[in-house]
């Protein structure tokens, strides 16, 4: 564990909690892309199946359980409890254009042609594009609640910090994973436009044109 990965994980956890609390407290999921949340639930499910097969550490296990639990709770709130506030018209990104190519790529480019490894690779590729429906929805509505932008900032920051974690681990531990790094770079680049808007327009509401 290094400082970049620790802060990255805490930033990721903060994003997940911010979103869950925002929906729960405001009893509304307006402006939130349910499709992105479904993709994140799939990302965690396919990546954390090793919860059943191997124990790494208490921290690792707890965080995985929290991530999966919050992801499904968020999907439940959006599509069941507060479905009346779900803005389906603006959440119109065709996720099949993400899942199918990512699935194909995971089968073609992976480290090991085994079930768990392909699922892990699929989850890494899918995570890099899972935020697209959300960014697309914001660009369609042209605005985002302040709390939503904080959610996106923490979410984008987490993988950016992971890039530094991978540099750290390459330098000090002498190994790296090209699949995770390339996907992590793509994921972080997708947030760049948002990061710029977030930093330059902080404070009084947002008019986005991502």
């Amino acid at each position: 564990m290094n400082i970049f990965r620790l802060i990255g994980d805490l930033s990721h956890l903060a994003a997940i909690i911010i979103l869950l609390l925002k929906i729960w407290k405001s009893r509304s999921c307006a402006g939130i892309s349910g499709k992105s949340q479904i993709l994140f639930a799939i990302v965690f499910t396919t990546r954390y199946l090793d919860l059943l097969t191997s124990f790494i550490s208490l921290y690792n296990t707890c965080m995985k359980v929290i991530y999966i639990g919050c992801a499904y709770a968020t999907v439940y709130l959006i599509y069941m409890k507060f479905r009346a506030t779900y803005d389906g018209n603006h959440d119109s990104f065709r996720v099949e254009f993400l899942v199918v190519p990512v699935g194909g790529l995971a089968v073609l480019i992976n480290h090991d042609f085994s079930f768990l490894e392909i699922l892990w690779t699929f989850s890494i590729y899918l995570e890099s594009v899972a935020i697209l429906p959300q960014l697309f929805m914001i660009s369609k509505t042209g605005e985002a609640e302040t709390i939503t932008t904080h959610y996106l900032f923490c979410l984008g920051l987490y993988r950016a910090l992971y890039l530094f974690n991978w540099i750290w681990r390459f330098y000090f531990e002498g190994f790296f994973d090209m699949i995770a790094i390339v996907a992590g770079v793509v994921q972080t680049v997708l947030y760049c436009d948002f990061f710029y808007l977030y930093v330059t327009k902080d404070g009084k509401g947002y008019r986005f044109s991502i």
């Binding site: 990965r5 191997s54 790494i56 690792n60 965080m63 991530y67 480290h111 190994f175 995770a180």
Partner: peptide
């Protein structure tokens, strides 16, 4: 392999 070490990450 080398990359399996990455499996301790979230």
């Amino acid at each position: 392999q080398l990359h399996n070490k990455l499996k301790d990450e979230l």
